[in-house]
Simulated assay, not measured.
Amino acid sequence: MRVGYLGPKGSYSGEALFKLNFLTDFEAIEVSDFSTLFDMLQKRSLDCVIVPVENSIEGAVGIVLELMLKHDFIIQEETILQIQNALMALPGTRLNSIERVLSHPQPLLQCKNMISRLLPYAKVVSCPSTAEAARLASLDPKSAAIGSPKNAELYKLEILLSSISDEEYNFTRFFLLGRTNRSRTGHDKTSIACSTYRDKPGALFSILSEFAFRKINLTKIESRPSKRVLGDYIFFIDMMGHREDAHVKEALAALVDKTSFIKVFGSYPAFREKTV
């Protein structure tokens, strides 16, 4: 099985890949950007892909949610990775000599206050991944990268500062996407996206009441612009239960008449730490 992740080697996506329970025998394929990951899965060059979907500090990874809407892939599993952002550079580098700070946009946002305080004059440069940022920093004595401590090992960098996230609690949730539906395990989640009818009072309440009436626990609800009309939103909802559970099945059926659009991303085992 070929599984794609946002590379190069050493990225957080690569770390998350090895926390999955679903995969046991696979070949990890490095890909340079999210759009290419989804295109390769669409063309069957890959069997699955792992992608970050939300962070405890900065929220949703918008580009990934948009790509999930565009494609018809199924969530196979979720996993959660603790993010330990470190500042790294070539050995012997001093903070006052750093002119550029490189990282993926998410870690840059997660560490923005720390960067402003410690490196107020450095230019912040966005990179496709934390691992690519580390690779580039290994070639430039005036640059430093923010990423996993494993990046320092891979690219022979020195960790100048550890744990530089603005918030101590920093976790990222990942989805493994593929083509097959997962069977019920008894400890499942279901993820959907839907839109309400515009200018209809109580439209969102009407949707949420279907879950409340059936005592379905919603673990996430988030709105994002539909990009069609100002004020038009798509709601991303995660709930406990499998789509084949009777109460979840009933709720999803009820939403068909109450939404202008609904998409079920799949049902999958809720996160548990990987067992040895």
Rank of each mutant, 00 (worst) to 15 (best):
L95C: 05
L95S: 10
N96H: 12
S97V: 02
S97K: 11
I98A: 05
I98Y: 04
I98L: 09
E99M: 15
E99A: 14
E99G: 13
L102E: 03
S103Q: 04
S103G: 12
P105C: 11
L108A: 02
L108K: 02
L108P: 00
L109C: 14
C111A: 04
C111Q: 02
C111F: 00
N113T: 07
M114Y: 14
I115S: 00
I115F: 04
I115T: 03
R117S: 13
R117H: 11
R117T: 11
L118W: 06
L119T: 10
A122S: 11
V124P: 03
V125Y: 00
V125I: 14
P128H: 08
S129W: 02
S129I: 10
T130E: 13
A131K: 02
A131E: 02
A133L: 06
R135W: 12
L136A: 10
A137H: 05
S138E: 08
S138T: 07
D140K: 02
D140F: 01
P141D: 01
K142G: 01
S143E: 02
S143H: 01
S143W: 03
A144C: 06
A145Y: 00
I146W: 00
I146Q: 03
G147M: 06
G147E: 07
P149Y: 06
P149V: 03
K150L: 14
A152R: 05
A152S: 06
E153K: 08
L154H: 06
Y155A: 01
K156Y: 04
L157D: 05
L160Q: 07
S162I: 06
S163I: 10
S165Y: 02
D166H: 04
E167M: 12
E168W: 12
E168P: 04
Y169W: 15
Y169A: 14
N170D: 12
T172F: 00
R173A: 04
R173N: 07
R173F: 03
F174V: 05
F175S: 04
L176N: 03
L177T: 09
L177S: 01
G178I: 04
T180S: 15
N181K: 15
R182Y: 05
R182M: 11
S183G: 14
D188E: 10
D188P: 07
S191C: 13
A193H: 01
A193R: 08
S195E: 11
Y197A: 09
D199I: 12
A203L: 05
A203H: 09
L204C: 03
L204Y: 06
L204A: 06
S206K: 08
S209I: 12
E210G: 04
F211W: 08
F213N: 14
K215C: 07
N217T: 12
N217S: 10
N217H: 10
N217P: 08
L218I: 13
T219D: 12
K220C: 12
I221Y: 01
S223P: 09
S223R: 14
S223T: 14
P225F: 01
S226C: 02
